[in-house]
């Protein structure tokens, strides 16, 4: 018999010092309502904490929300740590407020997708499902 409890696991984190968690909590709720297991780590996390938690939790996706403008400092650090932890099979998603040119650059670095403010919840859920499916089993 095959698995019946096969759920997408997502780790959601606020990295850096800003406390704007209105969006990230809505995202967590929508992903849960789509049947996923969402690990929420809370505010003010460092890249090291996020990557180490993601590995222990063996998540499919890391979602990092950031509205402080420090994304070009924080995402490269997360990617570097994921590489060090041999965790590059985990998909990295970003959310928040950032200029379009930064979005392009972050995707080139290896961020799977950036979900900007005002992305409808249904689209966020669909994106996570699609990316996990595209990655395939591991």
């Amino acid at each position: 018999m095959t698995s019946e409890d096969d759920k997408i696991r997502v780790l959601i984190a606020k990295v850096g010092l800003d406390g704007h968690d209105r969006g990230v909590k809505i995202v967590a709720r929508c992903l849960r309502d789509a049947g996923m297991d969402v690990i929420y780590t809370g505010l003010h996390r460092t890249p090291d904490e996020v990557v180490s938690a993601a590995v222990q939790e063996d998540v499919d996706v890391i979602g990092i929300s950031l509205l402080s403008g420090a994304h070009m400092t924080i995402f490269p650090r997360v990617i570097e740590l994921m590489r060090d932890a041999d965790a590059e099979d985990i998909l990295l998603l970003g959310g928040g407020v950032m200029p379009d040119e930064d979005v392009v650059e972050l995707k080139a670095m290896g961020v799977a997708e950036i979900l900007l403010q005002d992305t409808p919840p249904a689209e966020i859920v669909a994106t996570v499902k699609r990316l996990v499916e595209e990655r395939g089993p591991r």
Binding site: G16, L17, D18, T46, S68, A70, T73, I74
Partner: peptide, 22 residues
């Protein structure tokens, strides 16, 4: 800026990338 709001000096590791930004 966020470090000042959160009580970190600019040379604290949590401040990296956020000094004088917002």
């Amino acid at each position: 800026d966020m470090p000042t709001l959160m009580g970190y000096d600019s040379d604290h590791r949590m401040s990296h990338g956020e000094v004088g930004r917002e």
